[in-house]
Amino acid sequence: MEVLLVSLLNGLVYGMLLFMLASGLTLIFSMMGVLNFAHGSIYMLGAYFAYESTRWIGFWSALLIAPLLCGAIGAAIEIWGLRRVHHNGHIAELLFTFGLVFIIGRSVQMAWGMLPMPYRVPASLDFPLFTLYGLQFPAYRGFMLLISAGMLGGIWLLLKRTRVGMIIQAALTHPGMTAALGHNVPLVFTIVFAGGCFLAGLAGVIGGNYQSTEPGIADAMGPIVFVVVVFGGLGSLAGCFIASIIMGMVVTFSVVIDASIADLLRPIGIVPRSDDLLGEILTVPVARIGALLPLLMMVLILFFRPRGLLGTRDT
């Protein structure tokens, strides 16, 4: 029971962090058809920028500076990069972001070296918030929840209450029609791309000290965010949100389950031998294959429902 409740909270924290990354990616993906491979790299940049500004100015200003820098980089990528590649097709755009991964990855190594950076939780947030069954829940995680909930509210207001939001919503589902109505779709693209990178940078600021700040984090976060976006479905922020929470929960809960497929089979009298390949697959506990589950879920949902969970149109 205690494990369950603690995991629920932690799953929520991780899920919200995922959503912060995935929301930007899903907006970009839905509008431009580009699955931005470099999104994880922007997240990493956010963490490094946050480390630097924490060192020189302070954590609270980093909360604004790092995302703004990431947003500016995003805008630059869109204006001078993606827009030029656009007429070469989707695969070209995708490959363009793929090249960016290499360049950003190595540039970060060149600027900060390869060892992890001591980017730590600010002292003012470094205390236990409450204690649950003898385990403390740190205030910083509460803060992360607060920030991501604030972001969720912010995006919702932006999309529902502002003119830009309306256009973005329109462009999400009917990009061609929106352009035909005379809206400056390229500008909207730039705003969305920069906004997505802003959110990724923000995730980097609060994720960089929650996890660690090193060149490997881009690769660590990249794939799972992809899975979330595809799982949630194209053109649906709600689907993205649900998928983020589900994936956060799946990843957190799978590690506490020690059961394997063989345990399910045992009551009906099938006991696999563990010394062959099949036996090995059947007897591996869920806790060990936790990392596999999100991928498996993504492949299955694409197989049965290619639009994703709440997707509004085909990919």
Binding site: R84, G99, F102, R106
Partner: peptide, 13 residues
């Protein structure tokens, strides 16, 4: 890797 990345982006563009 950075050269591969730049070559790649140049080709795509």
């Amino acid at each position: 890797l950075i050269y591969v990345g730049v070559l790649f982006i140049a080709m795509v563009t």
